[in-house]
Design a binder for these strands. Structure first.
Ligand SMILES: [Mn+2]
Ligand SMILES: [Mn+2]
Ligand SMILES: [Zn+2]
Ligand SMILES: [Zn+2]
Lengths: 143, 143
DNA sequence: TTACAAACGCAAATGATTCTTATTTAGGTT
DNA sequence: AACCTAAATAAGAATCATTTGCGTTTGTAA
C-alpha cells in the first residue's frame, strides 16, 4: 500500500513541524497508526507495537497518542464506558457504535448544523467548542 | 417545596409498581434525588445521603441508581471521561457540558431528527437505539 | 563533545465502578 | 405473631483504563 506509506510520511512530516523528536518508539507508533484501520484503542496499538519493540511501555503509547491529539495529528473519541478510541480521520464526522461488537462506524451529517444553530440560541452566551453525535445500536452484521 | 414531595411520591409509587422494596437506604436516595438538581453523580448523592445514613455503602448507591435507570425512573448520561450523571428529566433532550466547571445544561433539539434520517440512510440495515448530541465548551458563567 | 529538554520505562497511584461474600431485612404467608 | 425467602445491604477486594512520579536515556543543536 503506497497509501500507508504516504500516511506515514505525513505523520513524520507533521510531527517534525511540531517539533516532536523522532524516537524509535514514536516511529513504531506512527507506522502502526498509518497501517491500522480507524478507531483503534491504545491497547491495540500497544499490542502490535510491542511485537517489534518489546521493551515499549504502555505509558509511552498513552503519552504519544494523547500528544498527537494535542498537536492535531489525531482525534480521540471518548465513547461512553469503553476505552478511548483514536481516529486518523480528521474530517468532521460522527460515530455509530454497535453495542454488540463495539464496532465504530463513521457517519457524515450535513444537517447537524441546524442542531448547532438551535443549541447556540438556547445556550446564550456560552461558547461551544465541540459537537459530537453519538449513535448507538446494533450493526448490520450483528443483527 | 410541594414539588419535591410530589416527586418523591412519584418515585415511591413507581418503585412499588416495579416491585422494589422500600428500604431505608432507597428512601434516602429517593428523597435526595427528588430534592436535587438534575445531573447528579453517584458520589454527590452518596455524600449527601451518608449525612443522614452514615453506614450507607457507595455500592448501594451505585446499585440503586443503575437499577432506577433499568426500571425507567432515571436516565443516565455517559459523559466523556467524567463520571456518570443521572438525570431526572425523562424528556428527550441533549446536553452541553462546560469544560471549566463541568456544569451540564439541557438542550432541546427539534432539528436533530434530520440528522437521525441522514444517519439511518448511511448506516443501512443497522438498528439505531439511541442518539445523543454532546456539546462541549465554556458556559456563560465561566467566560 | 557537551548540554539540556524531551522522551522513556517502570512501577505505583488513581478513580470510577463492579464484584464477592456473609449477613440482614422487607414484605408477603401461614 | 412467628416464619420464609428473595431482595438488599455493608464492607472491602478486585478491576480496568489511564495517569503520574521519578530516575535514566536519548535526540538534537550549539
Ligand atoms: Mn471516525
Ligand atoms: Mn438533562
Ligand atoms: Zn456489531
Ligand atoms: Zn462553566
Amino acid at each position: 500500500m503506497t497509501e500507508n506509506k504516504d500516511n506515514l510520511e505525513k505523520l513524520i512530516g507533521l510531527s517534525k513541524e511540531k517539533g516532536l523528536k523522532l524516537t524509535p518508539q514514536r516511529m513504531v507508533i506512527f507506522r502502526i497508526l498509518s497501517e491500522s484501520k480507524q478507531h483503534v484503542t491504545v491497547d491495540q496499538v500497544y499490542k502490535r507495537a510491542r511485537v517489534e519493540y518489546p521493551m515499549l511501555s504502555p505509558a509511552t503509547v498513552y503519552r504519544n497518542m494523547e500528544q498527537m491529539v494535542e498537536t492535531g495529528l489525531l482525534t480521540h473519541l471518548e465513547l461512553s464506558g469503553a476505552s478511548m478510541r483514536y481516529d486518523t480521520n480528521l474530517d468532521e464526522h460522527h460515530h455509530f457504535v454497535c453495542s454488540k461488537c463495539r464496532m465504530v462506524t463513521d457517519v457524515y451529517l450535513d444537517n447537524i448544523k441546524y442542531s448547532l444553530d438551535e443549541s447556540r440560541s438556547q445556550l446564550g452566551k456560552a461558547q461551544i467548542n465541540s459537537l459530537d453525535l453519538h449513535l448507538q445500536g446494533t450493526c448490520g452484521e450483528c443483527l
